[in-house]
Simulated assay, not measured.
Amino acid sequence: MNSEHKYYSIILKGCSHRENLERRLEKILLRGRLAIKMALDTMPCVIIYKGNVDASISIVKALIAEYAAITILADGVPPTLPIAKKYRDFLNINPELQALLVDVPENLWLGEAIHRIIPASFLDENGALVVTSHAIYFIDKPAGNTKCRWLIIPYEQLNNSLTLGEQETQLIIHHQDAAGQQNDAFTIPREFIASVKTSIEQAKLAERYLIKIKTHCITCGYISEDTIAHAPTEPHCQHCGKPYQRTITA
Protein backbone atom coordinates (compact mmCIF):
# COMPACT_ATOMS: atom_id res chain seq x y z
CA MET A 1 0.00 0.00 0.00
CA ASN A 2 1.09 3.54 -0.70
CA SER A 3 0.05 6.71 1.04
CA GLU A 4 -0.43 10.28 -0.08
CA HIS A 5 1.29 11.47 3.10
CA LYS A 6 4.10 9.06 3.77
CA TYR A 7 4.84 9.82 7.41
CA TYR A 8 2.86 10.48 10.59
CA SER A 9 3.84 11.36 14.14
CA ILE A 10 1.87 10.09 17.14
CA ILE A 11 1.70 12.13 20.34
CA LEU A 12 0.73 10.22 23.49
CA LYS A 13 -0.93 12.43 26.13
CA GLY A 14 -2.01 9.89 28.73
CA CYS A 15 -3.12 6.30 29.41
CA SER A 16 -4.53 4.72 32.56
CA HIS A 17 -3.76 1.12 31.45
CA ARG A 18 -0.01 1.58 31.39
CA GLU A 19 1.07 -2.04 31.85
CA ASN A 20 -1.29 -3.33 29.17
CA LEU A 21 -0.10 -0.62 26.79
CA GLU A 22 3.55 -1.50 27.48
CA ARG A 23 2.89 -5.13 26.52
CA ARG A 24 1.06 -4.18 23.32
CA LEU A 25 3.72 -1.69 22.21
CA GLU A 26 6.52 -4.14 22.96
CA LYS A 27 5.08 -6.50 20.33
CA ILE A 28 4.44 -3.79 17.75
CA LEU A 29 7.50 -1.58 18.16
CA LEU A 30 9.97 -4.43 18.69
CA ARG A 31 11.65 -2.58 21.53
CA GLY A 32 12.43 -3.78 25.03
CA ARG A 33 9.93 -3.30 27.84
CA LEU A 34 12.32 -1.00 29.72
CA ALA A 35 12.72 1.32 26.71
CA ILE A 36 8.96 1.51 26.26
CA LYS A 37 8.40 2.08 29.98
CA MET A 38 10.91 4.92 29.95
CA ALA A 39 9.08 6.49 27.00
CA LEU A 40 5.71 6.23 28.75
CA ASP A 41 7.21 7.75 31.89
CA THR A 42 7.77 10.97 29.92
CA MET A 43 4.11 11.43 28.91
CA PRO A 44 3.04 13.64 27.25
CA CYS A 45 5.55 12.47 24.67
CA VAL A 46 6.15 11.82 20.98
CA ILE A 47 5.68 8.05 20.86
CA ILE A 48 6.36 7.82 17.11
CA TYR A 49 8.22 10.37 15.03
CA LYS A 50 7.56 9.99 11.31
CA GLY A 51 6.22 6.44 11.18
CA ASN A 52 4.83 5.23 7.85
CA VAL A 53 1.10 4.85 7.42
CA ASP A 54 0.96 1.05 7.71
CA ALA A 55 2.98 0.94 10.93
CA SER A 56 1.03 3.87 12.36
CA ILE A 57 -2.33 2.14 11.95
CA SER A 58 -1.39 -0.84 14.14
CA ILE A 59 0.08 1.43 16.81
CA VAL A 60 -2.98 3.68 16.86
CA LYS A 61 -5.29 0.67 17.21
CA ALA A 62 -3.27 -0.53 20.22
CA LEU A 63 -3.41 2.92 21.82
CA ILE A 64 -7.17 3.20 21.29
CA ALA A 65 -7.72 -0.29 22.72
CA GLU A 66 -6.08 0.82 25.96
CA TYR A 67 -8.05 4.10 26.12
CA ALA A 68 -4.98 6.25 25.52
CA ALA A 69 -5.35 9.94 24.71
CA ILE A 70 -3.46 10.74 21.50
CA THR A 71 -3.16 13.09 18.57
CA ILE A 72 -1.68 12.37 15.14
CA LEU A 73 0.26 14.84 13.02
CA ALA A 74 1.16 14.52 9.35
CA ASP A 75 4.90 14.53 8.64
CA GLY A 76 7.05 15.84 11.49
CA VAL A 77 6.21 17.37 14.85
CA PRO A 78 5.83 21.16 14.78
CA PRO A 79 7.52 23.36 17.40
CA THR A 80 5.72 23.38 20.73
CA LEU A 81 4.04 26.60 21.78
CA PRO A 82 3.37 27.89 25.31
CA ILE A 83 -0.28 27.95 26.23
CA ALA A 84 -0.25 31.76 26.27
CA LYS A 85 0.23 31.59 22.49
CA LYS A 86 -2.10 28.63 21.93
CA TYR A 87 -5.08 30.26 23.66
CA ARG A 88 -5.93 33.75 22.49
CA ASP A 89 -7.84 34.70 25.66
CA PHE A 90 -5.08 33.53 28.00
CA LEU A 91 -4.49 36.98 29.49
CA ASN A 92 -8.21 37.29 30.27
CA ILE A 93 -8.36 34.26 32.59
CA ASN A 94 -7.64 34.83 36.25
CA PRO A 95 -3.99 35.07 37.42
CA GLU A 96 -4.22 31.87 39.48
CA LEU A 97 -5.11 29.82 36.39
CA GLN A 98 -2.43 31.55 34.34
CA ALA A 99 0.18 30.63 36.97
CA LEU A 100 -1.07 27.03 37.03
CA LEU A 101 -1.14 26.53 33.27
CA VAL A 102 2.27 27.97 32.41
CA ASP A 103 3.79 24.94 34.16
CA VAL A 104 1.91 22.39 32.02
CA PRO A 105 4.22 20.55 29.56
CA GLU A 106 3.76 22.06 26.11
CA ASN A 107 3.59 18.58 24.51
CA LEU A 108 0.17 18.18 26.14
CA TRP A 109 -1.34 20.51 23.54
CA LEU A 110 0.46 19.21 20.44
CA GLY A 111 -2.02 18.70 17.61
CA GLU A 112 -4.90 20.34 19.51
CA ALA A 113 -6.66 23.69 19.44
CA ILE A 114 -7.68 25.13 22.81
CA HIS A 115 -11.27 26.45 22.80
CA ARG A 116 -12.04 27.33 26.40
CA ILE A 117 -10.36 27.59 29.82
CA ILE A 118 -12.40 28.14 32.98
CA PRO A 119 -11.90 27.68 36.73
CA ALA A 120 -13.28 24.44 38.14
CA SER A 121 -12.92 22.03 41.02
CA PHE A 122 -12.87 18.24 40.96
CA LEU A 123 -12.66 15.90 43.95
CA ASP A 124 -12.12 18.92 46.23
CA GLU A 125 -9.13 20.18 44.23
CA ASN A 126 -9.23 23.56 42.48
CA GLY A 127 -7.87 23.85 38.98
CA ALA A 128 -8.68 24.59 35.34
CA LEU A 129 -11.13 22.88 33.03
CA VAL A 130 -9.69 23.07 29.51
CA VAL A 131 -11.84 22.31 26.46
CA THR A 132 -9.81 21.47 23.36
CA SER A 133 -10.53 20.16 19.88
CA HIS A 134 -9.76 16.61 21.05
CA ALA A 135 -10.56 16.27 24.76
CA ILE A 136 -11.62 17.77 28.07
CA TYR A 137 -8.78 18.32 30.55
CA PHE A 138 -8.80 19.03 34.25
CA ILE A 139 -5.48 20.50 35.37
CA ASP A 140 -4.51 21.03 39.00
CA LYS A 141 -1.54 21.20 41.33
CA PRO A 142 -2.29 19.96 44.87
CA ALA A 143 -0.75 21.82 47.78
CA GLY A 144 2.89 20.87 48.27
CA ASN A 145 3.31 19.50 44.75
CA THR A 146 5.83 21.05 42.41
CA LYS A 147 4.32 19.62 39.20
CA CYS A 148 0.91 19.83 37.59
CA ARG A 149 -1.22 16.77 37.04
CA TRP A 150 -4.04 16.26 34.58
CA LEU A 151 -7.13 14.19 33.93
CA ILE A 152 -7.94 13.71 30.23
CA ILE A 153 -11.37 12.76 28.88
CA PRO A 154 -11.04 12.22 25.10
CA TYR A 155 -14.21 12.88 23.13
CA GLU A 156 -14.27 9.34 21.72
CA GLN A 157 -14.77 8.14 25.32
CA LEU A 158 -17.50 10.68 26.01
CA ASN A 159 -21.12 9.56 26.15
CA ASN A 160 -23.66 11.71 24.36
CA SER A 161 -25.05 13.46 27.41
CA LEU A 162 -23.62 16.15 29.68
CA THR A 163 -25.86 16.61 32.69
CA LEU A 164 -26.19 19.07 35.54
CA GLY A 165 -25.96 17.86 39.11
CA GLU A 166 -28.31 18.64 41.96
CA GLN A 167 -26.50 21.93 42.33
CA GLU A 168 -26.68 24.39 39.43
CA THR A 169 -22.90 24.77 39.47
CA GLN A 170 -22.16 21.08 38.92
CA LEU A 171 -21.49 19.64 35.46
CA ILE A 172 -21.39 15.85 35.24
CA ILE A 173 -19.39 14.33 32.39
CA HIS A 174 -20.27 10.74 31.54
CA HIS A 175 -17.52 8.77 29.85
CA GLN A 176 -16.08 5.30 29.42
CA ASP A 177 -12.46 4.56 30.24
CA ALA A 178 -10.34 1.49 31.00
CA ALA A 179 -12.00 1.14 34.40
CA GLY A 180 -15.53 1.25 32.99
CA GLN A 181 -18.30 3.85 33.11
CA GLN A 182 -17.31 7.08 34.86
CA ASN A 183 -19.53 9.96 35.97
CA ASP A 184 -17.18 12.78 36.94
CA ALA A 185 -18.70 15.85 38.56
CA PHE A 186 -16.96 19.21 38.09
CA THR A 187 -17.98 22.28 40.06
CA ILE A 188 -17.92 25.36 37.83
CA PRO A 189 -18.93 28.98 38.48
CA ARG A 190 -22.58 29.40 37.53
CA GLU A 191 -21.85 32.00 34.85
CA PHE A 192 -19.70 29.49 32.91
CA ILE A 193 -21.94 26.43 33.00
CA ALA A 194 -23.96 27.06 29.82
CA SER A 195 -21.01 28.29 27.75
CA VAL A 196 -18.65 25.45 28.67
CA LYS A 197 -21.37 22.87 27.98
CA THR A 198 -21.86 24.45 24.55
CA SER A 199 -18.08 24.51 23.91
CA ILE A 200 -17.79 20.78 24.65
CA GLU A 201 -20.77 19.88 22.49
CA GLN A 202 -19.51 21.98 19.55
CA ALA A 203 -15.98 20.55 19.78
CA LYS A 204 -17.31 17.00 19.82
CA LEU A 205 -19.63 17.75 16.88
CA ALA A 206 -16.71 19.14 14.83
CA GLU A 207 -15.08 15.65 15.04
CA ARG A 208 -11.50 16.89 14.76
CA TYR A 209 -10.62 14.23 17.31
CA LEU A 210 -11.67 11.34 15.04
CA ILE A 211 -8.85 9.37 13.43
CA LYS A 212 -9.92 8.20 9.99
CA ILE A 213 -8.37 6.33 7.10
CA LYS A 214 -9.01 7.51 3.57
CA THR A 215 -8.71 4.53 1.22
CA HIS A 216 -8.30 5.44 -2.45
CA CYS A 217 -7.78 3.36 -5.58
CA ILE A 218 -6.27 5.60 -8.26
CA THR A 219 -6.98 2.95 -10.93
CA CYS A 220 -10.76 2.66 -10.65
CA GLY A 221 -11.47 5.73 -8.54
CA TYR A 222 -12.92 3.92 -5.50
CA ILE A 223 -12.72 6.05 -2.32
CA SER A 224 -13.85 5.35 1.23
CA GLU A 225 -13.25 7.12 4.51
CA ASP A 226 -13.77 5.24 7.76
CA THR A 227 -12.69 5.49 11.36
CA ILE A 228 -9.46 3.62 11.94
CA ALA A 229 -11.28 0.73 13.62
CA HIS A 230 -13.54 0.14 10.61
CA ALA A 231 -11.25 0.94 7.68
CA PRO A 232 -10.64 -1.85 5.11
CA THR A 233 -7.60 -3.91 6.02
CA GLU A 234 -7.00 -5.61 2.66
CA PRO A 235 -4.12 -4.10 0.65
CA HIS A 236 -5.81 -4.31 -2.76
CA CYS A 237 -8.97 -2.78 -4.18
CA GLN A 238 -12.02 -5.02 -3.91
CA HIS A 239 -13.23 -3.72 -7.30
CA CYS A 240 -10.19 -3.87 -9.59
CA GLY A 241 -7.50 -5.63 -7.56
CA LYS A 242 -4.95 -2.79 -7.75
CA PRO A 243 -3.09 -1.52 -4.64
CA TYR A 244 -4.82 1.06 -2.48
CA GLN A 245 -3.41 4.41 -1.46
CA ARG A 246 -4.12 5.27 2.18
CA THR A 247 -4.07 8.48 4.15
CA ILE A 248 -4.59 9.00 7.85
CA THR A 249 -6.84 11.97 8.51
CA ALA A 250 -6.94 13.37 12.02
Results as ranks from 00 to 15, higher is better:
A84L: 08
Y155D: 04
I200R: 00
Y137H: 11
T249C: 12
I57L: 07
F90E: 00
L63H: 04
S199K: 04
T249K: 14
N107G: 13
F122V: 09
C45H: 03
T132D: 04
D140S: 15
H134W: 06
A84M: 12
E125K: 15
L123M: 14
D41V: 06
P95A: 01
A68D: 05
N92I: 07
D54Y: 06
T249D: 07
R116F: 09
G76R: 09
G51L: 01
R33K: 14
P142R: 13
L162C: 00
L91Q: 14
L97C: 03
A113D: 15
T80N: 06
N126F: 09
H174T: 11
A55W: 04
F192D: 09
V46L: 02
Q245A: 07
I139L: 11
I136C: 09
A206E: 15
I48K: 15
E4M: 15
P79Y: 00
A250I: 04
D140R: 15
K141V: 02
S224F: 03
T249H: 10
E191W: 02
I28A: 07
K13V: 08
A229R: 14
K85D: 13
A39W: 03
S58D: 14
P189L: 05
L40W: 06
F90P: 00
A84W: 05
C220R: 02
L171D: 00
D177N: 15
E106H: 11
N92E: 13
R190S: 12
A229H: 13
R18N: 10
K242D: 09
A120P: 09
L129N: 02
L29T: 03
Y7L: 14
S56G: 03
E225T: 15
V53E: 11
A128L: 06
G165C: 00
N183D: 15
E22Q: 15
H230E: 13
M43L: 06
D89E: 14
R246I: 04
D89S: 13
D41K: 11
T146S: 12
A113S: 13
I47E: 08
F90H: 00
M1N: 12
L162M: 00
A69P: 01
K85A: 12
L30A: 10
L100W: 05
E191T: 05
I136Q: 06
K85C: 04
E106T: 10
H239K: 13
Q98G: 07
S133Y: 02
S3A: 11
A62D: 02
E112S: 15
F90D: 01
K85E: 14
I28C: 02
H17D: 15
I10C: 01
S224A: 12
L164G: 00
L123Y: 12
R116Y: 13
A55I: 04
S121D: 07
A69H: 05
K214Y: 02
D177F: 01
T132F: 07
G127R: 08
N159T: 04
A231N: 01
P44D: 07
G144V: 09
P44Y: 06
F138Q: 05
K86G: 10
N2C: 10
Y209I: 06
R149D: 05
S161R: 07
